[in-house]
Structures are given as C-alpha cells and as structure tokens.
C-alpha cells in the first residue's frame, strides 16, 4: 500500500529534465506511440508482423525527417549568427 501511495505521489511533482539537447530524446517515445496508433487505425486487417513492421517503418521515416529538420534549422541558425 505505501508503494502504491508513493507511485501516486510521483505524479504530483514534475521530473527534473534540464533544457539540454538530450531532452530532445523524449520525442522518440512520442513518435513510437504516434506510429503504433496511426497504423492500428489505418490498417484494414491487423496482421501482427506486418503491423509491427509498418509501424517501425513509419517511426523511422518520421525520425529521419525530424532529425533532418533539426540539422537544417541548426545550419540556418549557424549561417545567420556566424
């Protein structure tokens, strides 16, 4: 019972996450959830293997696109400020 209370209490205070480049890694669980939910609603019939492969492909596609966007934006920033 005390463990359950401690678990509930952990939802009342924010975690300590700094404003660092590493905090961008939090986008990956979000992207995984988006890919899994989107493919679950889109596929007509759910075959588990195909579903997981399609979700993985979508996850990789969005991740690569976002990383490319980050690189381009940093390059633009570097060109403007240098």
């Amino acid at each position: 019972m005390p463990d359950f209370s401690a678990m509930l209490a952990s939802f009342t205070t924010p975690e300590s996450i700094g404003t660092t480049p590493q905090s961008l890694l939090w986008m990956f669980p979000l992207l995984a959830a988006i890919a899994l939910v989107y493919k679950a609603t889109k596929m007509r019939v759910l075959f588990m293997r195909k579903y997981l492969l399609d979700s993985l492909l979508l996850f990789m596609t969005i991740s690569v696109f976002l990383i490319a966007a980050i690189i381009v934006l940093n390059l633009v920033d570097w060109l403007i400020t240098s």
Partner: peptide, 19 residues
C-alpha cells in the same frame, strides 16, 4: 493496442510534468 499505447502516452506525460 490503442488502449495500451494511448494510456501509456498520457500517463507518461502526467508522470513527467505532474498532473
């Protein structure tokens, strides 16, 4: 699948930022 993914995402958000 939808229940697990969406609920896990929402609970993770609450855990990180608090309720």
């Amino acid at each position: 699948i939808l229940f697990v993914c969406i609920t896990a995402l929402f609970c993770t958000g609450l855990y990180i930022g608090s309720i």
